[in-house]
């Protein structure tokens, strides 16, 4: 017994080192697997609070930019609105509630944004108290941003599309050929769309939008335009480089999307399991 204690005391530095190194490697590996890093995230009380405080100061410097974006968006929405009024004579909804749609939109402010690492996260200033929960989609008026993965009381953390673990269903705007949106970690303005079948008619400059296959984003939210494409090694699928419409390095306010029917659809699909 004495010898064991002596051994422990003599090697306390080595043991402490191995223990803490093991712990930090464990946290690293855990954060590399999707949806697992629960405790060490910036959506907690202290870190979220500090980011919120510093963001309150920064926001003033961008007010003009945000106003400009809101104006642009209003213009687009007005354009859409006039189109709807034109067609309203033809399509008549008897029950007004049936037209409400299955998506709920909430606004939030980005208080911390990363884009220089290979796995980037964004922190928002809304959390569980504002009915935001896991797997809600996050967009801006120009395009998609990411998916919520951690929620605390007043803050939430978003897996940015600039994250090597992010995988989002996307499709061509013209046809319905779809693939998965990933990021190779290099340029924060360019993402990759993989697994698009070779049959798809692809031209440089075509628009890519979100696909209807995921329960997170509504179909047809713009993502970016095709910059470059090539066939993969066995020449059956395209890998497409997409330039984002959204400037991921400069996000101010975002919309968080909730799919109200998600639970119902998941239940239905999970009947066999």
């Amino acid at each position: 017994m004495q010898q064991i204690f002596n051994f422990l005391i003599r090697n306390k530095n080595n043991i402490l080192f191995l223990l803490l190194l093991g712990l930090s490697l464990f946290l690293t590996i855990q954060s590399n697997s999707f949806h697992k890093s629960k405790y060490i995230s910036s959506a907690n009380f202290i870190t979220g609070g500090i980011y919120n405080w510093s963001n309150n100061i920064q926001t003033y410097f961008y007010l003009e930019d945000y106003n400009q974006r809101l104006l642009e968006e209003n213009k687009e929405l007005r354009k859409l609105l006039t189109n709807i009024e034109d067609t309203s004579a033809v399509i008549n909804f008897e029950d007004s509630t049936s037209f409400n749609g299955i998506y709920l939109f909430r606004t939030a402010k980005v208080i911390n944004n990363n884009y220089s690492k290979t796995d980037n996260y964004i922190t928002l200033d809304r959390g569980r108290n504002s009915q935001i929960s896991k797997e809600h989609g996050v967009i801006t008026s120009q395009g998609i941003v990411g998916i919520v993965d951690q929620v605390s009381k007043n803050y939430s953390r978003v897996i940015s599309i600039l994250n090597s673990h992010s995988k989002i269903n996307a499709q061509l705007k013209k046809t319905n050929h779809f693939g998965s949106l990933i990021w190779n970690g290099k340029d924060p303005n360019v993402v990759q769309l993989i697994d698009v079948p070779r049959l798809a008619p692809i031209k440089i400059g075509d628009t890519i939008v979100t696909g209807g296959k995921s329960l997170i984003f509504p179909q047809g939210i713009p993502i970016g335009s095709i910059e470059e494409f090539k066939l993969d090694q066995n020449e059956s699928y395209y890998t497409i480089e997409i330039r984002l419409f959204n400037d991921m390095t400069n996000i101010g306010y975002v919309y968080v999307i909730e799919n109200k029917d998600k639970v119902e659809i998941k239940e239905l699909e999970g009947i066999d399991d």
């Binding site: 803490l20 712990l23 930090s24 890093s37 060490i40 910036s42 870190t47 996260y121």
Partner: peptide, 27 residues
Amino acid sequence: ILVSFFLGLTIDTFEDSGGINAAACVI
């Protein structure tokens, strides 16, 4: 070693990077 670990871990918490800073500091 202990203080360095907490230094790295705090940075990691802010950066959402798991334990990479903590590991580097401990080493």
